[in-house]
Structures are given as structure tokens and as C-alpha cells.
């Protein structure tokens, strides 16, 4: 019997009842994966924009605490475990060394080093590998000479890397273009001032005032632009979580229809192993408890822990791009 079996049975029962009650409305979404994922993506974009416009500080403070660790688990599952990135001998294990360096406080050019074994691992033509290594060199030059600017750009743009991953996961229909168009429209809305009023009245109890986010995530910018950059970050970070926790899992699954929670847990256990999963569950509980005691400190703690994952996404992206293959569905 799997861990938490009674809980999964309860949840599966509740979901079945909801499906039966709303069968006429839900049937097309259950039967058609592309339609379901598209609807989930639209829902995620609208929800993220609404929360950004209403309570950006709560979104910035609570998002990493509640969804941060599960999204790291998804990163490890879909970028490493399922494609078997760790099963290529010594070279593949070397990929993780720079990520450990980043967790120990290494400068960003060290994190970028994980791109090198990733590119060399790819089963690709020499010219493509050369292109991958050239991209690594260019990024390394920027990270070494303009470290602060590089870190800022990386912080804001890595949220979009997740969207690119999701887009590349499966062949997309023309109607899927609606998703990137909606994201661009939402960013226009934020940068044209549509969510400005949220800056004045949100989250006094989050422990992190808006000025603190400006200082860390948009330093040196003119105040209005800095505020909008923070709002766009809140929006894109929420979307980043939605991509790794809802959209990619739905697209990566071999079975087109949603599967029971119990089966999902079993598949997760198969991919990552029970010990690692239990460590992740404990980490979730620790961050939640820490957040109750001191939300700002818990968020900082999570961000220190998660600093490696952007470089992992970059290395995996380089691997798939050079190999010119979609991340394989399980």
C-alpha cells in the first residue's frame, strides 16, 4: 500500500463526485488533453494577474513558501529523472557539481558551468554542440563582467524559461498561441500601470515591504518602473509555479486523461524514490511552519535553497535544445 493511501482514496472519491456532478461541462476537458491544458493555462494567467493586481506582496511572500518546494520537485522530476539526465555516467553527475557550488554561495558563472556537461551529453552534431558551448561562453562573459546586471536579468527572465519548456513539451496547435499572447497582454497591462494601485495597499503583515522587494529585485531603476518590474515578477513567478505544477505534469503524462491521485503519487514515487520524496515533504512542512513564525525569513531561506534551480533549468534547456528533441513524455 502506498504512503497516504487513505488520503488519496478520499481525494479521488471527492474528485469523482465533482466529475459526475458537472459531467456535461467537464467531459470535453477530461477527454481532450490539449483543451484541458489550454483551459488550465488561461485560468492560471487570469488568476495570477488578478492576484498581482490585488495583493502582490502576499503573492510574493506566500508563493515561494507554499509552492516553492513542490516546484523544485517538479524540476527534478521532469528535467532530470524522466529524461534520465542522470543516467549518462560520470559526465551527467558532473552536471550537478556547479549547482552545489551555487547553493554554497558561488558566483553565477559557476552555476553556468553545468551547461557544459549538459551540452556534451547531448546526442547531437558537432556544430550544434559548438553552438551550445558558444551560448555558454557568451552567458559566462556576461555573468563574469556584469554580475549584478546578469543576476537581475536572470531573476526576472528565468520565469519565462518555464513557459518555453512547457511550449516545447508537445507539438502545439495554432490555438495554443493564445497562451503566449495572453502572457504578453498581461505584461503590457502591468507595465502600462494597470496594477499600480496594488502597490499602495497590500500585505502590511507579510514582513517584507514593497521597498524591500524593489531594493533586492529591481535596484537602481526609476521608482515607477521598479514597482512595475516587481509586479511583473509577482505575475511571472506565479505563472512559473503553474507551469511546473499543473501544465507540464499534464503534458508529460503518457495517459491523456487525468489519473487518480493515488496513481499520481505512485508515479511520483517511481520517478524520484520514496526517501527523496519524504525529504521533500518534510521540507514543505518545515517551510510552512517557518512561514507561520516569520514569513520574511522563511521566504529568504527558501530562496537561498532554491538558488540552484534556475541554472538547472538552463542546463536542461541547453541539453534539449542541442539535442533538438522534446523532453520525452514518460
Amino acid at each position: 500500500m502506498s504512503v497516504g493511501a487513505p488520503a488519496w482514496t478520499l481525494l479521488d472519491g471527492a474528485r469523482s463526485r465533482v466529475y459526475r456532478a458537472f459531467a456535461p461541462v467537464l467531459r470535453p476537458f477530461i477527454a481532450n488533453r490539449a483543451l484541458r491544458v489550454q483551459a488550465l493555462a488561461v485560468f492560471s494567467i487570469v488568476t495570477a494577474l488578478a492576484l498581482t493586481s490585488l495583493a502582490p506582496l502576499w503573492l510574493l511572500a506566500l508563493g515561494p513558501i507554499v509552492l516553492g518546494v513542490p516546484h523544485l520537485v517538479a524540476d527534478a522530476r521532469y528535467l532530470v529523472a524522466q529524461p534520465g539526465l542522470h543516467r549518462h555516467g560520470a559526465l551527467s553527475w558532473l552536471l550537478f557539481l556547479p549547482l552545489i557550488g551555487i547553493a554554497l554561495g558561488a558566483p553565477p558563472f559557476v552555476g553556468l558551468l553545468s551547461m557544459v556537461p549538459a551540452v556534451l551529453l547531448a546526442n547531437a552534431r558537432f556544430s550544434l554542440k559548438l553552438a551550445g558551448l558558444s551560448a555558454w561562453l557568451a552567458l559566462t562573459f556576461a555573468a563574469f563582467h556584469f554580475e549584478n546586471h546578469f543576476l537581475l536579468a536572470f531573476l526576472h527572465l528565468h520565469n519565462l524559461v518555464a513557459l518555453a519548456f512547457w511550449w516545447a513539451w508537445r507539438p502545439r496547435e495554432a490555438r495554443s498561441l493564445l497562451i503566449p499572447l495572453l502572457v504578453v497582454a498581461a505584461l503590457f497591462f502591468i507595465f502600462l500601470g494597470g496594477a499600480d494601485s496594488a502597490v499602495a495597499h497590500s500585505g502590511p503583515r507579510t514582513g517584507s515591504p514593497f521597498g524591500e522587494f524593489v531594493e533586492t529585485n529591481a535596484p537602481g531603476f526609476e521608482p515607477m518602473l521598479a514597482a512595475r518590474l516587481i509586479l511583473s515578477f509577482a505575475f511571472l513567478q506565479s505563472l512559473h509555479y503553474a507551469v511546473w505544477l499543473r501544465l507540464v505534469p499534464d503534458d508529460a503524462r503518457a495517459r491523456p486523461a487525468p489519473r487518480p491521485f493515488a496513481a499520481s503519487w505512485n508515479a511520483l514515487e517511481r520517478d524520484l524514490g520514496l526517501p527523496l520524496l519524504l525529504v521533500c515533504v518534510v521540507a514543505c512542512v518545515v517551510f510552512a511552519a517557518w512561514g507561520v513564525v516569520n514569513l520574511a525569513e522563511a521566504r529568504d531561506g527558501y530562496l537561498r535553497l532554491a538558488s540552484f534551480h534556475g541554472y538547472l533549468e538552463l542546463a536542461a534547456g541547453a541539453y534539449f535544445l542541442v539535442q533538438q528533441k522534446r523532453p520525452a513524455p514518460c
Binding site: 558561488a106 558563472f109 559557476v110 556537461p117
Partner: peptide
């Protein structure tokens, strides 16, 4: 020191490759 570590890492990657 990180630069040195990075170069050593690249040598290691080369050897593994």
C-alpha cells in the same frame, strides 16, 4: 578561488568526456 575551481571543473569534464 571560484575561477580556479571552475577551470578545474572544466578539466574534469574534459577528462570525463
Amino acid at each position: 578561488p571560484w575561477l580556479g575551481t571552475g577551470l578545474a571543473f572544466l578539466a574534469l569534464v574534459g577528462a570525463a568526456r
